[in-house]
Write a protein that binds this DNA or RNA. Structure first.
Lengths: 341, 341
DNA sequence: TTGAAAGCGCTAACAG
DNA sequence: CTGTTAGCGCTTTCAA
């Protein structure tokens, strides 16, 4: 088994030194190379089929051209929450941008026995994208990191982390107001666990804001919080089917699907008997029955932005704390009906 | 900014050589260390918060404890096909097993200007898991790889690749036969592009096998092949709504959802007017309306197996070509109705 | 039972 | 404009 082709082999072939080869590979602007030398080196590279060894590079530069992406799991040490297409779409966008910029992404869940800082540092990651909310001590270690960290969908207050969001509170407000404007007064909220600093909490606050503004008092019987899953939506829908709420703000598409099913099971028709407004606008929202009116966020853009920011940060193109807020808007479909008061 | 803690620092702290520290970290069985030395080293590691540098390790060992995972994309150079939850579930399982074994996964799509072999070799990947079917030249380069490659859901014939499958042809046969046994004769097949060596092609063959066995001749008007997407399913459903087929075998859940919608749009009720049998059994299958009778494959197991195989292969625990066939079975739900002949 | 030292492939001062 | 060379942090052979 023949040895791997290295810089040395290329240098030999081209009749130059390894340094020169390194210069042309990285096309150092500081260095001035004869076009002729460059061509000779490139020819040798092609001829030999040279491929750089990232490990060696990483060792020298302490940079890996690799970005760590952390995605929520069903529970620590378990599998990802990929039942929610939101994460798939987001991840997809991140990967694409990374790849286009010569980076790769390392995907992982969280481990009980290892902080992500350890992982990042052992792997010389160039940047970290963390999606969703974790426990406080998860972030703790990271604040001591030299590596840029961007938080997607979390409201953790720490000047060290960069953030990319939508205005979740405003989103919750918009959704609820949309319902109120159409004559609804008894409005339920089906949501995930209201972790402090999490998106669900923010959306819930927006829901309350709208209620308050309209002079409607909050009724805790109309709040259904659990996991962000089809099942929780289903349970909530089932219960709602037996109540007198006329509308529900369901704060994720996957929850809405469950709600729809629960409602239908109880013989309630949407939007005739009860209106539903959703959040996210993944492909699920427009393919279900009825298609959901929804607060839309641009998931792809979120992913693209996260990747672009982390890359710029790691190369030093971008400096200073980043806090980006992406726009949202309501997409009207068929799940909400005006209610005559 | 203080330098990173290295083996040398640990050695100094423990009053031993770097070699000794390396021995205890890797707990070489060949080496015999005094328990006392071991303890001293471990204490130093803890005290200093030492974290190994994978880049250095990779450089020496030419192994990275990293597994490359390739997932289908909408098109080369574009984003992933994560609208299909199948991939999310699979990926999730792979990641979990990898992590539990001290590996990480590098996720990527395909690039036009770089073969995956180059990527794998530049990153010193320990193994590669390729999901789905690609063009022939994509595999071409890989056959020259020293790195173990396992193919999930592809029937490429090459003794170099390891394979993990279900019996897709048998699955197509079972689905179709299930329909035939219930009195259906005019049975459509909605499927993805019939790439040679791909799963869709196999399932389609199974469909034909069942037809032939029952003495039903194949009618190309009943074949709807396009992308594996909701939209293609929808189009097919729409057309089917205007035809006289009494049943349809739809070869992926995501297609089935589209078919269901198309049929409903055309005012056809499932299973009353027309029966639908699906394939995969992702969460979509049991949450849609009506819940789909389906050929179930254990996606999680597929992912787990792929990860276990690639790891064993890379450590040398496992040798020789692996070709694993996972079981499938039909799960009866509410989308198929017996038809009186 | 432990240590010294030679690399792994690459980058970047510095020298020429 | 190009080459020499000293590491980057770790593993491992060989010697003690």
């Amino acid at each position: 088994m023949k040895r791997r082709i290295g810089l040395k082999d290329v240098a030999l072939e081209a009749g130059v030194s390894t340094a020169t080869v390194s210069y042309v590979i990285n096309n150092k602007p500081s260095q001035t190379l004869t076009p002729e030398t460059i061509e000779r080196v490139n020819a040798a590279i092609r001829k030999l089929g040279y491929v750089p060894n990232m490990a060696a590079r990483a060792l020298v530069n302490n940079k890996s051209k690799m970005i760590g992406v952390v995605i929520p799991q069903t529970e620590p040490g378990k599998e990802f929450v990929f039942s929610n297409p939101f994460y798939g779409e987001l991840l997809s966008a991140i990967e694409l941008v990374a790849r286009q910029n010569g980076y790769h992404i390392m995907l992982s869940g969280t481990n009980a026995d290892q902080t992500y800082l350890e992982i990042a540092s052992t792997r010389s990651l160039d940047g970290i994208i963390i999606v969703g909310m974790y426990t406080a001590d998860y972030y703790e270690a990271l604040t001591k990191s030299q590596i840029p960290v961007v938080l997607v969908d979390s409201y953790v207050q720490d000047s060290f982390f960069h953030e990319i969001h939508i205005d979740d509170r405003q989103g919750g407000y918009l959704a609820t107001k949309y319902l109120i404007d159409r004559g609804h007064r008894k409005i339920a909220n089906v949501t995930g666990i209201l972790k402090e600093n999490g998106v669900n909490e923010q959306r819930f606050q927006g829901y309350r804001d709208a209620l308050t503004e309209a002079g409607i008092s909050f009724d805790s019987n109309l709040l259904f919080n659990g996991t962000v899953s089809y099942d929780h939506g289903l349970q909530a829908g089932l219960q709602l089917g037996a109540q007198d709420a006329t509308a529900v703000f369901s704060s994720a598409d996957i929850l809405s699907l469950g709600v729809l099913k629960g409602l239908k099971t109880k013989g309630r028709s949407v939007p005739h008997d009860i209106s539903v407004i959703s959040f996210d606008d993944t492909w699920l929202a427009c393919t279900c029955d009825p298609p959901l009116t929804v607060v839309r966020q641009d998931i792809e853009r979120k992913g693209i932005t996260a990747a672009e920011v982390i890359i710029s940060l790691s190369t030093g193109t971008l400096k200073g704390k980043q806090k980006i807020m992406l726009p949202i808007h309501i997409v009207e479909r068929e799940s909400v009906q005006r209610r005559d008061v």
